[in-house]
């Protein structure tokens, strides 16, 4: 049997978290039974995926609306039931627009799930959400005075806001806090996104998916470097074009919004 058992990602909930962009696949030191029967038994373990391929997880996902990105994400979209970390150094490059196609799909679902914004850095602006096809009344903005309340509220939302989307802008997050949040969201069909500063990329994290954002000024493109995902690592960034306010021409009103060539979000993610 020429197949070595390689785990280049990490186990969900494994406290000894992996480092992003490690120099090659990591051989897990766990002395597992390597006989075929052992392998077969392992394959039956839920939540375990083989490192040589993208995990075909049974986890629900929500199409990102960008086929190039969907193809690189385990589950084929934004993971539900696992933490996603977006690391960004510059406000305004499209960190929220990136999610607009997925949120527009979510917003049109019959059960009208809430989209919760926890401690956003600025005032979320209703017309922008409406313009992107996201019903503003579904957007709930939560602000807390004490940081410990924010963490509590985040955990509560992840646990008890089923079938919703939760975006949080945590001020400071210890690694055990991250683990707690990851545990809270596990196996719950919630889109859980932590918006963090690019500087935190160097710290390890329990999040299942970590993406660093970059721009190419002048191009309207957003570069996504996947620092961590369930599956093999990729080093080259994926370029997507989030819905842009441009071009804006004076009689714009008559035109459909965002008349841009971008993959149309299919009717996915029930």
């Amino acid at each position: 049997m020429g197949q070595a058992l390689i785990f280049s990602g990490d186990f969900s909930g494994d406290p000894e978290e992996t480092v992003y962009a490690s120099s090659g696949p990591r051989l897990d030191a766990t002395p597992l039974d390597r006989t075929p029967t052992g392998l077969a038994a392992l394959a039956a373990v839920p939540g375990l995926w083989r490192g040589d391929a993208l995990a075909r997880v049974e986890l629900e996902s929500l199409s990102t609306g960008y086929s190039a990105l969907d193809a690189q994400l385990p589950g084929g979209g934004w993971p539900l039931g696992a933490l996603t970390e977006i690391l960004n150094g510059h406000t305004g490059i499209g960190e929220m627009r990136l999610f607009f196609p997925a949120l527009a799909v979510l917003s049109k679902r019959a059960d009208a799930p809430p989209i919760i914004l926890l401690q956003p850095p600025y005032m979320p602006y209703a017309p922008a959400f409406a313009g992107a096809g996201i019903a503003p009344e579904q957007v709930l903005v939560l602000r807390t005075r004490r940081p410990e309340d924010a963490l509590w509220a985040c955990e509560q939302c992840l646990k008890y806001a089923p079938r919703s989307a939760v975006f949080a802008w945590p001020q400071r997050l210890a690694s055990q806090d991250l683990r707690r949040l990851q545990l809270a969201v596990e196996n719950r069909p919630v889109l859980a996104v932590l918006m963090r500063d690019l500087k935190t990329a160097q710290h390890s994290s329990a999040a299942a998916l970590r993406i660093a954002l970059s721009t190419d000024p002048g191009s309207r493109q957003l570069g996504l470097r996947i620092l961590k995902r369930r599956g093999a690592l990729i080093t080259r960034p994926i370029w997507v074009e989030p819905p842009s306010p441009l071009p804006f021409i004076p009689d714009f009103h008559e035109e459909p919004l965002h008349a841009l060539d971008r993959p149309v979000p299919a009717a996915t993610a029930a």
Partner: peptide, 21 residues
Amino acid sequence: DMRDLLERLNARLGQQAIQRL
């Protein structure tokens, strides 16, 4: 569940903490 959650958030964080756009 959602209703219960909002009630809890409301009770602990205060009425002004949650706003709907």
